[in-house]
Design a protein around this nucleic acid. Structure first.
Length: 440
DNA sequence: TCTGGGGTCCTAGGACCC
DNA sequence: TCTGGGGTCCTAGGACCC
């Protein structure tokens, strides 16, 4: 049995790279992709990073760079990114035996037992993805997932920041092929906060103990780390030491929670306006539940003011038990609206709201035991499930919200609830037929 | 004026039980 | 004065990830 070996493959500046596939004119330009409501930057091209734009930077604080530095800002198009992601993942899956899709732009690949020059193989994969999809990727290889993530960081910085690491590690970095003294040298010039699982809080606490670099962290005593912090950080330290502790998860379990939440463009004061939003969120949650084949046992609804703004703060949530558990749009919407009525207070400027499905169970598990007096699911609910499936197909085909259940509690025609009147770029759906497979 | 939208896991402490 | 102890389940909150 050979020692474990993993690759972490991810797309560089993924959302920005996706936009460039369709607008080659944006190549070389500083480019950012903005969150919902064009609130803040969620992806940056290398040129934008060089302008000093930070991840999550509020748009209003960097807008001046449009004029001053030719910065281009686009509204996010998550449908497009999802489609490109699917293609990228299937190309990358051929790199090893198993693949764990970790996020929209990252996957782990199990390389255990694969012989040969992995850096050369990695470069080949990189060329292939670049040619076929137009997306640049970086690959990190290590004996544990944590070290593969670290290798990926090295591969990126070696390419983007000249002199930060030896140039040979650019784009594809295989830490399993680096001799121990050279590995120590790499870990010594890398801050501990770059490690997967070390966030700002823990990084600060490590600083206070004189732990600054990845090498410092690797050389800590796992037992000390466990007592001072948690088993999670202990696992991270062991992984840095080359001990494989984090399972490879190539068959992800069903989600335990499903949420739909949004910040509003401006302040929302009225119950009616919140109700429109909450209805839309509940409908989307119901769709996602059906997509993964789950029922919700509870539904949480929340509304809150903005902690970034002056003025009275208010944040409240309510959990509604769903008996029996369900993925029915009408039932979930009704529950969310009832919750909203109990938590709503007048006089606050609401900035965010959301709906979350909790206590999920498989839809095919039946309804479970019903409390005395509750009518068992019957023909009526089967009819409803069929209706839901039809709605999902129509909405998938013609766009979200094409078909929805009318709220019967207000006689007035419902205004289509929207995030913002104007967007920087219009939304469009992807038609793969129109996308060239290879860029000549 | 203007600050994303999803998720996961761990821990501490309270409730409850025998 | 002195007032058990251990197990389990649940929840809230913290920390992390992209």
């Amino acid at each position: 049995m050979s020692a474990s070996r993993y690759a972490l493959v991810d797309g560089n500046n993924f959302y920005a790279s996706c936009e460039r596939v369709f607008r080659p004119s944006l190549e070389q330009q500083p480019l950012i992709v903005l969150s919902n409501n064009d609130g803040c930057a969620i992806a940056r091209s290398n040129e934008a990073k060089e302008l000093g734009i930070k991840m999550g930077a509020p748009w209003h604080t960097i807008k001046h760079l449009e004029r001053e530095a030719g910065l281009v800002a686009l509204s996010a198009n998550f449908t497009l990114y999802g489609d490109i992601s699917d293609r990228m993942m299937s190309l990358v899956s051929g790199f090893g035996h198993r693949q764990e899709i970790y996020s929209i732009d990252e996957s782990f690949v199990d390389l255990t037992g694969i012989r040969g020059d992995l850096v050369a193989r990695g470069q080949k994969l990189r060329q292939r993805v670049l040619q076929w999809l137009g997306i640049p990727i970086c690959i990190g290889i290590g004996p544990t997932k944590t070290l593969a993530k670290l290798a990926n960081h090295v591969a990126k910085d070696a390419e983007r920041k000249r002199g930060s690491y030896p140039a040979e590690h650019a784009q594809v970095c295989d830490l399993t092929a680096v001799p121990a003294p050279a590995l120590d040298a790499l870990l010594m010039v890398t801050p501990a906060r770059e490690v997967w699982g070390v966030g700002p809080r823990i990084s600060d606490q490590l600083h206070n103990l004189g732990v600054f670099t990845v090498k410092d962290l690797r050389d800590m005593n796992p037992a000390t780390v466990r007592s001072r912090w948690s088993v999670t950080l202990e696992r991270t330290v062991r992984e840095l030491q080359g001990v494989d502790c984090i399972d490879f998860d190539d068959a992800p379990a069903a989600k335990q929670e499903i949420a739909c939440t949004r910040s509003f463009g401006g302040s929302v004061l009225e119950m009616e306006e919140l109700a429109e939003a909450i209805s839309a969120f509940a409908a989307r949650v119901a769709e996602k539940l059906r997509l993964q084949g789950s029922h919700a046992g509870e539904l949480l609804t929340f509304i809150r003011t903005s902690p970034f703004r002056q003025g009275a703060q208010y944040s409240r949530s309510a959990i509604m038990p769903m008996i029996p558990s369900t993925a029915d749009t009408a039932l979930l919407t009704k529950a969310a609206l009832v919750s909203l009525r109990t938590i709503y207070r007048t006089g606050f400027k609401y900035a965010k709201a959301g709906v979350m499905a909790l206590s999920l169970s498989p839809a095919d598990q039946g309804q479970g035991e019903l409390p005395f007096g509750v009518t068992p699911a019957g023909a009526k609910s089967e009819l409803r499930a069929g209706l839901m499936a039809t709605m999902d197909r129509v909405n998938d085909r013609y766009g979200r919200g094409s078909l929805h259940i009318a709220r019967n509690e207000s006689a007035a025609p419902t205004r289509q609830w929207s995030m913002k009147q104007e967007r920087r770029t219009p939304h469009y759906t992807t038609d793969w037929q129109s996308i060239p497979l290879a860029r000549a």
